[in-house]
Design a protein around this nucleic acid. Sequence first.
DNA 1: AACAATCCCGACTTAAACAATGGGGATTAT
DNA 2: ATAATCCCCATTGTTTAAGTCGGGATTGTT
Lengths: 152, 152
Amino acid sequence: MKLSTKGRYGVRAMIELALRYGEGPIALKNVAESQSISDHYLEQLMGSLRKAGLVVSVRGAQGGYMLNKEPGNIRLSNIIRALEGPIAPVDCVTDEPGEEICEQMDTCVARGAWLRLRNAMVEVLDNITLQDLVEETKNIKEDETDNYMYYI
Amino acid sequence: MKLSTKGRYGVRAMIELALRYGEGPIALKNVAESQSISDHYLEQLMGSLRKAGLVVSVRGAQGGYMLNKEPGNIRLSNIIRALEGPIAPVDCVTDEPGEEICEQMDTCVARGAWLRLRNAMVEVLDNITLQDLVEETKNIKEDETDNYMYYI
DNA sequence: AACAATCCCGACTTAAACAATGGGGATTAT
DNA sequence: ATAATCCCCATTGTTTAAGTCGGGATTGTT
């Protein structure tokens, strides 16, 4: 029941981009460095985020990545789904189409439980946007004037 | 963000025991067969459940396992914790003691989000007992008179 | 035009976790 | 005694996670 590094790194990188929203393309190298993530690995994640339409890339010198929407319109659920796939504690409660997997779905008493679990998870992740996290970052910055690093 | 077979099999096995609560020890072999789980593998899981105090075992011929509490007092969270460890989407929001892991915890803006996620998950799993699932099984049995198998 | 800074992409590697399997020992009802 | 159980440790095979490697394509800068 853990997120993998994909989800964790991805959220960190997206927060970074959200903090610098409006500054034009940010080179992946910068994000990777400031977040202590292998830049080659982060590259893969950014690829997924781009394909999901959450970021756009600018190639060539002075290129980089930027958010494709306002931070207030990017939800944690979007990021997690792009990087880890459907949010679902078990395969039989995926919202993706064409997922059946278990023939006993209709008579499975546990499925109701997993469904409730999934809905609770989605509810939380749908209701946290990058904007929320940016604002929280500013609050922390006010409190502690040293730095605003955030690792997960 | 998926449960492993440990959690899924474990819940299935515990539902089975809950359905037969009061009948004395149920041989692991029966549970494994009726749930199509490798009995040797299920043995390991039952070991964990026993150590967690959720079931008791009776050794020797005619032995087996039974719930150690009433089904209404065993929550899905108990089962999941026993088999999969702490319920937490990331390590830094574990409720277990002595878990620090990340030095930046105080200034991490994402941690608040993970904390909300974890609380939502725990809330759901704390509020579903085996008794709830047993009752649901009976409802399903009323509807569909064929069988009451439930795989996950 | 040359160059360097970027993104882009597929293949590969390593390590860990998952999901069992196997063998043998201890306990106990019949 | 015997067979049915639980108990425990070690081993194996498979999959996934996490990261590495190398090279190609694009583009601003000089």
